[in-house]
Amino acid sequence: MNVGIYIYDNAEVLDFSGPFEVFSTASRLTEPTDFFNVFLIGETGQSVLARGGYSVNPAYGFLDAPGIDLLIIVGGVHLQEMQKKNVLDWIALQAQSANLVASVCTGAFLLAAAGVLKHHHVTTHWEDITDLRASYPNLTVQESRRWVDAGDIITSGGISAGIDMSLHLVSKLHSTELAEKTARQMEFDWTKNA
Rank of each mutant, 00 (worst) to 15 (best):
Ala150Leu: 08
Ala150Ser: 12
Tyr6Cys: 07
Val48Trp: 09
Glu180Trp: 02
Glu127Tyr: 08
Leu169Tyr: 00
Val170Glu: 00
Ser144Thr: 05
Leu139Gln: 15
Asn193Pro: 08
Pro58Ser: 14
Glu12Pro: 12
Val3Ile: 15
Arg28Met: 14
Thr123Ala: 02
Val56Glu: 02
Gly162Pro: 02
Ile7Leu: 12
Val77Gly: 07
Gln80Tyr: 10
Asn86Trp: 05
Leu29Lys: 05
Leu178Ile: 13
Gln94His: 08
Ala65Tyr: 04
Gln96Glu: 07
Glu12Ser: 07
Phe23Pro: 04
Asp15Lys: 00
Ser17Thr: 03
Lys172Gly: 03
Leu110Cys: 04
Leu169Glu: 01
Val101Met: 08
Ile5Val: 10
Lys84Gly: 08
Asp149Gln: 00
Lys85Asp: 13
Ala194Lys: 05
Glu187Phe: 05
Val74Glu: 02
Ser135Cys: 12
Asp15Met: 01
Gly52Ile: 06
Ala179Val: 03
Gln142Ala: 05
Ser24Phe: 13
Pro32Ala: 07
Asp15Tyr: 03
Cys105Gln: 11
Asn10Glu: 15
Asp149Glu: 00
Gly42His: 11
Thr106Glu: 12
Ile73Gln: 06
Leu49Ala: 11
Gly18Glu: 00
Ser175Tyr: 09
Ser171Gly: 09
Tyr6Trp: 11
Trp147Ile: 06
Val104Glu: 04
Leu88Ser: 04
Ala194Pro: 14
Gln80Ser: 08
Thr182Val: 02
Ser103His: 08
Thr182Asp: 01
Ile7Val: 14
His119Tyr: 10
His174Arg: 06
Val56His: 02
Ala161Val: 03
